[in-house]
Computed example of a mutant assay.
Amino acid sequence: MTAAASIAGVVLAGGASSRFGRDKAEEIYAGRKLIDWSIAALAPVCGAVFVSGHAHAARESVPDRPRAGLGPLGGLAGALTAARDAGYERLLSLPCDTPHLPEGLLDRLCRSDGAAFALSCPVIGIWPSADADRLAAWLADDGPRAVRAWAEAIGAQAVESDTIPNINRVTDFERLGQK
């Protein structure tokens, strides 16, 4: 089985963009929307790419689970369910605000045994879809909402990488555009 046949991807795009001041997923950077940078990064290594928390004309949108408002883990739980139900063994996650990823990071994650995440940006990770119900239960029981806490709870491997530029504020966006 090829990696793409067993791995789905998700772009986590459900944040309120409150620090950015407007919908950053729709912000144009170097000729395309930020959300489309993440979709383009996932597409070559994933059999399907979902979008969580944001409508996208070309991709299936998946709802947070067990309910909205739980941050990236709610989006991850919903996407794990969609991936599992579609027959994918694992899910590769990216936020919508990291247009430049270290070379080879996604391939290293995909080659990991079990769950793994980028040490400098834990929402970038690979997760077993079989954990969909477990994560939803964790969130329903008011488990910590930090991705790093979830990763630790399931024994996910931290993968070292170069610093990953993340866009949280307009100044981050402007600084990235100047490089």
Rank of each mutant, 00 (worst) to 15 (best):
R90G: 13
V62Q: 03
P95I: 03
D97G: 00
L70W: 05
L42W: 04
L92T: 14
G87N: 02
D113T: 15
A57Y: 03
I39T: 13
V51K: 08
G69P: 08
H56W: 01
R59L: 06
R111H: 10
G47A: 02
D113M: 14
L91Q: 06
R32S: 06
A43F: 04
H54S: 00
V62F: 02
L109V: 11
L94F: 03
D107M: 10
P99V: 05
C110D: 08
H54W: 01
A58C: 07
G47P: 02
G74Q: 02
E89S: 15
P99F: 12
F50G: 01
S38F: 04
G74D: 05
L91T: 13
A57E: 08
R84H: 14
L76M: 14
I28V: 09
G69M: 06
R65E: 15
A116E: 09
D107C: 05
A30Y: 01
L105N: 09
D85L: 05
Y29L: 12
G31T: 00
R84L: 13
F50N: 01
F117D: 08
V51T: 11
W37N: 09
R84D: 14
S38D: 13
R108V: 13
L101R: 11
W37Y: 15
L92H: 04
H56P: 03
P102T: 10
L92Y: 07
C110F: 06
P66F: 00
R111G: 10
S112H: 08
S38C: 12
G71I: 12
L106C: 10
P99Q: 09
L109E: 12
A30P: 04
V51D: 12
L80I: 11
A77K: 02
A79T: 11
S38I: 10
A68K: 07
G47R: 01
R32E: 06
S93H: 04
A83V: 10
P44E: 07
A43I: 03
A43L: 15
C110H: 09
G87T: 01
A83G: 15
R108L: 14
I28Y: 01
G47V: 03
L92M: 12
A48V: 15
L73Y: 00
V62S: 04
G53C: 01
G114R: 08
C46A: 02
R59C: 15
H100R: 14
R111W: 05
D36C: 05
L101W: 10
T98M: 06
Y29G: 06
S52Y: 02
G53Q: 00
W37I: 11
Y29V: 03
G78R: 00
T81Y: 00
I35W: 00
V45G: 08
F50H: 05
L42P: 03
E89I: 05
G114M: 07
G71N: 01
A41T: 03
A68G: 11
R67E: 08
C110R: 11
A83M: 10
A79G: 12
R59F: 09
R108K: 10
I39H: 04
C96I: 07
D113S: 15
T98W: 01
S38Q: 12
G71Q: 03
I35G: 00
P95K: 00
I35E: 00
I28Q: 07
A43C: 08
G114W: 13
L105M: 14
R90T: 04
H56M: 07
E60V: 08
